[in-house]
Amino acid sequence: MISLAALTALCPPPAVVPPAPDWPRVEDTLGMGLPQDYKELITTYGPGRFCGFITLYQPHAPSEWADLTGPMPARLRGQIEEVRQAARHPWQLPHSPEDLFAVGVTGNGDYLFWVTRPVGTPDEWTVAVNEALRAPWFTYNGSLTEFLVSVLSGTTSVPMFPKDLLDLAPAFTPSPLESGSPAAVARTPASTRVIRDWASAKGYDLPERGRIPIEIIEAWKQENPN
């Protein structure tokens, strides 16, 4: 695809990447087809970060925080309206939560979503970005690969992204887990007990039982990115 060629020219992929996922199995797990450009992106780049900032979710990733086939996409979809309604002045949503499927996250806790319309035609899906499940929202009328090309080339400016994102040349940094580092180990999802203990130490008013508010989860993730 032209957009992938443009992205690899702008931001070269690693020389060595993990084997491509079993895409039919991935799509069967999700119960839906995936955009062809996403499958080519993951096959070409593997896990890692664009500009040290944008991380795409991977199928069957070792950490639930980055697992496309894990609980995070559905969990985030369910929390969008919850966070909005909890606000003193709820904001208008540009897309129905049912139409959003999380596909990535940034170093600042912004989420990247596919807008899964039209249903059943994933190659026509567009991209939405929001700030930690709150307003503001930004919608890009194109594929995920086209979004990356546009952002990393400086053509598109996403309001919630850092102003200095492109101060250095665009680059892709493979995750240590897949880079062959002997010290790399598979990361396991943090337990709720770990997050509760951290929140208590930080002075958050968190009940011993029940769902941990997304604000606290996001704060924990910011302080514990690895």
Rank of each mutant, 00 (worst) to 15 (best):
I80M: 02
V83I: 01
R187F: 06
T55Q: 10
F101I: 04
P14E: 13
S181T: 12
L168E: 13
P225S: 02
P21T: 07
R134S: 12
Y204S: 03
E146I: 00
G33F: 02
D205P: 10
E218P: 01
A86T: 04
T121Q: 08
P182H: 09
R25H: 15
L68K: 02
V16R: 10
D110G: 03
D164E: 09
D167S: 07
A128W: 11
R134N: 09
V115N: 08
T44L: 09
A190Y: 07
F138H: 10
H60S: 14
P47A: 08
A20S: 08
E27G: 03
T116V: 04
F50E: 00
F113A: 12
D22P: 02
A171V: 05
D37C: 14
V127R: 01
P159K: 02
R117A: 01
M1A: 14
T156M: 09
D167N: 08
A135M: 06
A219K: 09
A201L: 13
A102Y: 00
P97L: 07
L56V: 13
A102L: 00
P213I: 06
E40Y: 03
T8N: 02
R117E: 03
A20E: 04
I212D: 00
D37T: 05
A169S: 13
M32Q: 04
N141F: 13
P136H: 14
L148N: 09
T44R: 05
A61L: 04
V129N: 03
M32V: 08
V194S: 15
P170Y: 04
G107W: 00
